[in-house]
Design a protein around this nucleic acid. Structure first.
Lengths: 127, 127
DNA sequence: CGCCTATAGATGTAATATGCATCTATCCGA
DNA sequence: TCGGATAGATGCATATTACATCTATAGGCG
């Protein structure tokens, strides 16, 4: 944001901002490892997610004890670090989701407000 | 985000990320000046909005010709800089809103996904 | 008038976050 | 044993943010 107002996500994908709730949700659905999480997160709409940030983020969450992990050998390819949600992480997910609900509401009202704009500005949704 | 997963907006307010669409929408509703926009933006849910960023942002948008502005004397207090949306800004609003719609959709599906989580994780929304 | 306060707006800067490229290591199959 | 795919980790240059500070003007007041 700031200096060049232009820069925001160009495609219309969910800002990387929501990486955290996504990861927590994914891990609430079951243990997983970085690479897989990366793909799932991308499939969820965070197209801009990239390995660097994701691995770092996972590590940071572990430091906060939202998740815990261990190495696990795999048949095919190098060992993986498997992550599971901790109890604390479950609480974090809950909080995140609450925030997201608030965001959704604001978003919805903002969008509604746009749709009821008097004139041509709302052309995308008018006959 | 990243390094310390804790840091994100704590309250659950709309990330300042959405400052741009908010400002464009507000200005699509009519001309306004910085101070007033700041308050409106805050009322819309972006509690974390602060003067510094907002004024800078307005200036940046003007450089991109999304808005244009001029000084206007006021009875009470110092002169204000009044901003109006340009045609180009109207287009920008349109694009922003399209992105926001996408975000909303992802958000909604993410939230649904949370609500259908098997066990206790979804305690906040189950009987 | 001289001073104080509230309103408006502009800037500087340190701390953080992100994006991107790169690096290591392991396994598989040819 | 070499090359490719899988996994994960890291370094570093930019971007972004939050905060504090600074200027300027109008209005009220003693």
């Amino acid at each position: 944001m700031s200096e060049h107002a232009q820069s925001g996500d160009p495609n219309g994908t969910l800002p990387r901002h929501y990486l955290k709730p996504c990861l927590l949700l994914l891990l609430a659905e079951g243990p997983s490892h970085g690479y897989e999480l990366l793909e799932q997160v991308r499939r969820m709409g965070i197209k801009g997610a990239e390995p660097g940030g994701l691995y770092r983020y996972l590590r940071a969450m572990e430091k906060e004890e939202m998740v815990s992990s261990w190495w696990e050998p795999s048949q095919a390819g190098p060992a993986r670090r498997t992550y599971v949600l901790t109890e604390h992480g479950r609480g974090g997910l809950h909080d995140s989701v609450q925030s997201l609900r608030d965001v959704r509401e604001i978003l919805v009202s903002l969008l509604d407000r746009f749709d009821t704009l008097p004139t041509r500005a709302a052309s995308g949704s008018r006959p």
